[in-house]
Nucleic acid binder design. Structure first.
Lengths: 205, 205
DNA sequence: TGTACATCAGTGAACGCGCGTTCACTGATGTAC
DNA sequence: TGTACATCAGTGAACGCGCGTTCACTGATGTAC
């Protein structure tokens, strides 16, 4: 990568990347705008050419996260078709894969306290991405025996909560919460038991 | 509460309380030592009479949290006896109740990044509290049909993850993650489905 | 009960520092002719 | 192709501010006799 002179060339992206790195290291409220600028090799004042401030920077990081997340989810969903069950399981795995591969984005999206309604672009990206999850859950929900079918929104909330919990507690370096099992296995087995409880998987599978 | 003069009387507790309040409002890295002092109506310098610094203050908040948590868990566990199932479900409900009633403590304990091994007192409190959860899971685990019994550690990791996820996503004001169901119901039904999947509850209960 | 003294828990001033934000500026790039 | 000029993206100095931490200090409390 060539060393640039007075003009950075791609400062906006560089700032987002610096922001993501800092979020991973110190959490969404643990770094300063000046640190982000330094990370990108630039004066704090330069940040204002591209963002309104620190929060605006994080919101952009979150937006980009939702874009990536949405793409991954759609791809996973399509790949699992035409079976509702396999499409669902595929999105579950993709969820965890995303959280592990893009921890900074994940935090910016779900732990930064930035409202999804902060700006229309962010809202649109989030709505699309979360829509895929909902859809996968609704598809599968159709296959649940009617007498034990929970509302799709509840069903999807359960799965999301389990996934999020696994990410937070076991897929991070969080000390004191180490599990002897890899997060992938925990999530897969956890979802498996849950689906069995709904009659979606045969009892002895 | 009488206005005190030069001597505060119970500054240490007041600082912990201020810290908890600030954690709730701004997250574990979102406030300063000076703010905590101000919250307690005292000079920043006074903090050093009781704590080594900001992190030490948070660690004490976490320790107190684990003490309360441990007490609640033990009580819930005992109350559910002698049935392993009802003891287990009782601790599950108590977990969520704790998270809702003591959000500052909860964050200090599980989201602050403070290591459980920071000091022996903290470690002892955490070990005791988490031990109750493990025990409840192990008891119940005995009742799972042998052919579908997951290792107790995995079983308890699933439940903890589900509980934590419900707390993080649905029991907070986190915008954009609102669910139409109260967190209590989500957790209760989620655990219900899960236990059914393990054959611990009859399929048509 | 009174007094002298030790201990304790807070003050407030001081320090150097990094922060966010603004501003006039300047070097680099793009474009019209 | 060359040149003049507009636009753009960054600089660096400046500002006032709140931070963490230290220090000698002082007011309040506890205790010995």
């Amino acid at each position: 990568m060539p060393k640039r002179g007075y003009h950075h060339g791609n400062l906006k992206e560089a700032l987002v990347n610096g922001c993501l790195k800092l979020i991973e290291a110190k959490g969404p409220t643990g770094f300063t705008l000046s640190e982000a600028a330094r990370e990108a090799g630039v004066t704090p004042a330069a940040v204002y050419r591209h963002f309104e401030g620190r929060e605006d920077l994080i919101a952009e990081a979150a937006r980009q996260g939702y874009e990536i997340f949405g793409d991954l989810m759609e791809h996973a969903y399509d790949k699992g078709q035409p079976s509702a069950l396999s499409a669902f399981e595929s999105t579950g795995r993709a969820y965890l894969a995303f959280a592990r591969k893009f921890p900074g984005h994940y935090v910016a999206m779900f732990e930064s306290g930035i409202s999804i309604n902060r700006n229309p672009e962010l809202n649109a990206a989030a709505t699309r991405a979360l829509g895929v999850l909902e859809k996968a859950a609704e598809d599968l929900s159709q296959h649940i025996p009617a007498d034990k079918r929970p509302p799709p929104a509840m069903f999807s909330a359960h799965i999301w909560a389990l996934s999020h919990g696994v990410v937070e507690l076991f897929a991070r370096g969080s000390p004191g919460t180490i599990s002897p099992y890899p997060p992938e296995d925990l999530l897969e087995t956890g979802i498996g038991v849950y689906l069995r409880g709904l009659g979606l998987i045969s009892p002895d599978a």
